[in-house]
Simulated assay, not measured.
Amino acid sequence: MKTIGLIGGMSWESTAEYYRLLNERVRERLGGLHSAKCVLYSVDFAEIERLQVAGLWDEAGEVLADAARSLQAAGAGLLLICTNTMHKVADQVVAAVDIPLLHLADATASAVRTAGLRRVGLLGTAFTMEQDFYRDRVAGHGLEVLVPDTDDRAVVHRVIYEELCLGIVREESRAAYGEVISRLVASGAEGIILGCTEIELLISPEHSPVPVFATTRLHAEAAVDAAFASGR
């Protein structure tokens, strides 16, 4: 089993889910007391969030690139960026190391296609919903991506940063997300991508009339599969 390198802390709430899911997946696969071989570099999310808001993506990318170099030096055989939004700087991370990066959008799009769907709604931070770095990556797998309208995007983004990243889960926010999902479904979405790793703290399959694709879980499962694959 290759060692999985995790670039986490964005937020630590969802990174903790990554750690749990990776270990559960390995235990399911090998049984007994087996657990995942992994190393974690957890950044200070306040620093990253400040750079996001200021539009200083190259600077944010260098922070993650430094983390990637440290993980490679620590023995990681593959990398995960444990957040959807920061895949905006995935190319900087890839260029910094000699080990592969498992792109979260690819793992998610593969699951959507396996489910036989072609049109999906995307929930995430405003950066993920409004910029093309993530939507285009998913669309490159032959999928059509729908995003909420302006007001709904504002609600989804606010809940992520002001509640979920702080470990706050509110029923009224779950209801608000349910309304956003219903409007996406009415617009033709056959499934919903939970395109922010914290959203899974709020939304589960029972909260949606169509299938939901939990990106944290899908990414973790794909990482374990890759860790056991042949080759480096």
Rank of each mutant, 00 (worst) to 15 (best):
E47R: 04
V39M: 12
A65T: 07
A67F: 09
K37Y: 03
G55A: 09
L51I: 02
A65K: 05
R50A: 13
S35H: 14
S42D: 11
A46I: 01
D66R: 14
I48E: 05
W57Y: 07
I48L: 03
V43P: 10
V39P: 09
G61H: 13
A54M: 11
E49P: 00
V63G: 06
G61D: 13
G61V: 11
S42E: 12
V39S: 12
I48H: 06
R50W: 03
A60L: 14
A54E: 13
F45E: 02
D44T: 06
V63N: 05
Q52L: 02
C38N: 14
D44M: 06
A65I: 03
Y41Q: 13
V39R: 14
A54Y: 08
K37H: 07
L56Y: 07
A36H: 10
L64R: 01
A67M: 07
D66Q: 15
S35V: 08
V43L: 13
R50S: 12
R69V: 07
R69D: 09
Y41L: 10
G55Y: 10
E62L: 03
S70L: 14
E47H: 03
G55Q: 10
Q52R: 00
V63F: 00
G55I: 08
S42L: 13
R69A: 02
V53A: 13
V63D: 08
G61A: 08
D58N: 15
L51H: 02
A46S: 01
R50G: 06
S35Q: 13
Y41E: 05
